[in-house]
Design a protein around this nucleic acid. Sequence first.
DNA 1: CGGCGCATGTAACTTGTTACATGATTCC
DNA 2: GGAATCATGTAACAAGTTACATGCGCCG
Lengths: 180, 180
Amino acid sequence: MNDKSRTPYLILGLLAEGPCSGYDIRRITLSRFRFFWSESFGQIYPCLKKLERRGLIAASGKSGRGKVAWEITPDGRRAFAAWLKLEAPPETARYESILKFYFSWAMSKEDRDRLLSSFRGRQEASLKELESFREELRRIPDPHGNHDIALATIDLGIATYRAWRDWAGARLDSPARDQR
Amino acid sequence: MNDKSRTPYLILGLLAEGPCSGYDIRRITLSRFRFFWSESFGQIYPCLKKLERRGLIAASGKSGRGKVAWEITPDGRRAFAAWLKLEAPPETARYESILKFYFSWAMSKEDRDRLLSSFRGRQEASLKELESFREELRRIPDPHGNHDIALATIDLGIATYRAWRDWAGARLDSPARDQR
DNA sequence: CGGCGCATGTAACTTGTTACATGATTCC
DNA sequence: GGAATCATGTAACAAGTTACATGCGCCG
């Protein structure tokens, strides 16, 4: 495991919490992980096969439909723990809508407002989704004692979505004033 | 210009504000754009050549050292404006340190605190950098009247860095309590 | 029994990074 | 004159997306 893709570790980490299918992993990255992670099927499925070949995960029978439940092996846990200790490299980001906002001096006021308002709407929707997931998580039992950390992660997402929504809101409500 | 890379538009947009070299573009993405954009030399230089071949930009002589000053052409402005009008596709993100925090139930408390504290330090440093750039921008003249929008963009970065720094700070100062 | 969503898979492609090379200029 | 930084460039590679194909099971 000396390549640079993080996909294997995302998978190992999720499986370390409990069995999962490739489809489950995809759904997780699309919902509660969305503000900090993404994966496509084209990454997930080949990576699952590769991890299996290396003995880091194993298929533990099929559940409903064609769904495969994957489990982490002791070797997998070791590989995961080793990665977890490493310092993460500097982060990079690409938010096209922020880039467009930066360039929005070249737009009409209407187009800029449309951009802002659609931005605000997306943050608002993501916020609602995370907030309701947070409530759900708070209610269900916590067998492994890791809910506090999951909740803390979600709180970071909530804080981010709120800050972004409010930022857009302020530009829409009083666009001429200089807010901080 | 029917491919999916946004690099050409970043370049066109920056050149639309004034002449720039490839190195300048890189520096901009490394500093004030860092919270929402990144580019590597391996993308920038080939892309500049391609944009020149297509007549969207032109080299306007050399300045100090071997530095090439690039300018946008009328065709370039049109291509830029056309892209700007399009709705941006859904955003994806990858923050390895947040992923690691999510998985930090598998860490010792010391390792988790180290992670949080290094995270906080990076947000703090980025925040300071953006704040001082903001002050600098406020002081210099604004010939094209687009400083307000640049400042607004920077404010989003500042809000993000603050929220992230404070989130990490709260987890470090009173890790047992349930903050919002 | 038709359509939708679940679920897996993969091939072709694009995008982006890394590592390297080169040379000029500034500063000590 | 040597080191650091500025500045450009590219080849090899890795990573990630897209578009497709397949089939099952559930629901109306």
